[in-house]
Simulated scan of single mutants.
Amino acid sequence: MKSRTGKAIAHTNVTVLNSSIKTTSNEEGSFSLELKKGKYQLEFETPVFAPVNRQQKVDTKY
């Protein structure tokens, strides 16, 4: 996760909505999720900013 200015946002909670899948970004703002192909609604939460929802399409497994 990065802010609009490009600064890493550490410890952001990332949740796949309507599931029990979640993770937290590391110190560099990076995170990973293992998801099957499909469309997912992700929620990003951090104490510093308001929550943000984003739809993400997964085409292949990396």
Rank of each mutant, 00 (worst) to 15 (best):
T23S: 04
P51T: 01
P51F: 03
A8I: 04
I9F: 08
K61F: 12
L17F: 07
E27W: 03
T15V: 14
F49V: 14
T46W: 01
E43V: 06
M1D: 04
V58T: 08
Q41H: 08
N53R: 14
V16Y: 01
T5I: 08
E28Q: 15
I21R: 00
N26A: 05
S3W: 09
E43I: 06
M1W: 00
T46S: 12
T15L: 01
K37D: 08
V52R: 09
K22G: 09
K61I: 11
T24V: 15
P47A: 03
V16L: 04
T24L: 06
I21V: 13
S20C: 09
A50L: 11
V16D: 00
A8P: 15
E34D: 15
S30A: 13
K36E: 11
P47S: 09
T15C: 01
K57Y: 10
V58H: 02
R54K: 14
Q55F: 12
H11E: 08
F49A: 11
L42V: 08
P47L: 06
N26K: 06
S20Y: 09
V16C: 05
A10D: 01
T60I: 14
K61M: 09
F31H: 05
I9V: 15
E27K: 13
L35A: 02
M1Y: 05
P51V: 02
T23A: 01
I21M: 05
A50N: 15
F31A: 00
S3T: 15
K61V: 11
L33V: 07
T5F: 06
H11R: 13
A8S: 15
G38D: 04
R54W: 03
T5S: 15
E43M: 12
K36C: 04
K37L: 06
T23G: 01
G29S: 02
K61R: 14
S19Q: 07
K22Y: 07
V16G: 03
P51L: 01
T60H: 12
L35Y: 01
N26W: 00
G29H: 00
Y40R: 02
A10K: 07
M1F: 04
A50E: 14
G6E: 07
L33P: 06
N26V: 01
Q55Y: 11
N13P: 04
P51K: 07
F49S: 07
T12E: 00
G38P: 05
K37P: 15
T12L: 03
K36P: 05
P51G: 05
F49E: 10
V14G: 01
I9C: 02
T15E: 07
A8C: 08
